[in-house]
């Protein structure tokens, strides 16, 4: 390694450390802010150096455990149902697309790609889902619109099948008398663990983070998932005071907002490191051909 190389390596580290700090600083601030004393935060503002620590915000949110518990439960149900359904629907459709000799193959491929070119936009989608399918204020509204599958996932899985599942293997299963459904569940699924993890993570994060469907289709606050609770608090900090149960405790308006956000991001922070590689792989696989 020559000197120029070493210098550049050092420069790389300096830049990357700087950008890394920029990336995590807001999270650090959020956590510190959530542990700051309300009175101190109001007079001095949040600060990067932890001072006047207090757990008041969390103790206040604990009195709202019911609200957050329900939000978490709804988000969990929606995320799990949506992700499982998406994996099945996407895999099955992509399996069909990847069959050699499939009749109308050109039509099906176009059918998928066209959805990336042209869409009806919010107004007609909204009117269709509310007027024709009556999803307003039901859990369906959080699962169905836009998130269940899309051309991006379908193409990604189709390409995976094409390059990772040998046709001879499927043919052998067919000769042994295995039905198409049997081949799909007993041969294709077990061979597809990496792509299932990739798509599952992307879809799971999309469902967990989704607040738009809730914003469009849910008025009933009892059906708010965690993101929509956060959104409601963001629009009006007083939202936290609704629903009673806080007892004599006064709401620490500024710090409890921050604590609520911390509660909302914890699950992602926990699962993300385990799935990071799949996530990176998914972006690489899908983005260029997307």
């Amino acid at each position: 390694m020559n000197r120029g190389h070493k210098k550049f390596l050092a420069l790389s580290h300096v830049v990357l450390i700087f950008v890394t700090i920029l990336c995590i600083l807001p999270f650090y601030l959020l956590i510190v802010a959530s542990f700051t004393e309300e009175k101190y935060a109001v007079t001095n503002g949040f600060s990067l150096i932890p001072a006047h620590l207090s757990t008041d915000a969390y103790r206040y949110l604990l009195t709202k455990a019911y609200l957050f518990g329900r939000g978490y439960l709804i988000t969990f149900i929606v995320t799990i149902c949506g992700t499982l359904a998406c994996i099945f629907i996407t895999m099955a459709f992509s399996y069909m697309l990847s069959r050699p000799g499939l009749p109308f193959k050109g039509f099906f491929n176009f059918y998928v790609v066209f959805t990336m070119l042209f869409n009806g936009g919010l107004v007609s989608t909204y009117i269709m889902y509310t007027q024709t399918f009556h999803v307003k204020n039901t859990l369906w509204a959080l699962i169905l619109p836009n998130l269940l599958t899309n051309a991006f996932y379908i193409i990604m899985v189709r390409n995976y099948f094409a390059s990772n599942i040998p046709e001879e293997l499927l043919e052998a299963a067919r000769i042994d008398g295995c039905s198409e459904a049997g081949i799909f569940t007993r041969v294709v699924f077990p061979l597809s663990k990496p792509i299932i993890a990739t798509v599952g993570l992307m879809v799971g994060v999309a469902y967990w983070n989704d607040w738009q469907n809730g914003l469009y289709y849910i008025d009933n606050q009892k059906l708010y998932g965690i993101q929509n609770i956060l959104n409601a608090i963001n629009e009006n900090a007083k939202y936290l005071m609704t629903g009673g149960g806080s007892g004599a405790m006064q709401m620490p308006a500024n710090t409890s907002r921050m604590a609520a956000a911390v509660i909302g991001i914890i699950p992602i922070l926990i699962i993300y490191p385990f799935f990071q590689d799949y996530f990176v792989k998914g972006i690489t696989m899908g983005a260029v051909k997307g």
Binding site: P26, F27, L29, L30, V205, W208, N209, D210, W211, Q227, L230, N231, N234, R257, M258, A261, G264, I265, I268, Y272
Partner: peptide
């Protein structure tokens, strides 16, 4: 990986 709601808080 953060939702835009959380980004808004940050």
């Amino acid at each position: 990986l953060m939702s835009m709601v959380v980004v808004s808080y940050l």
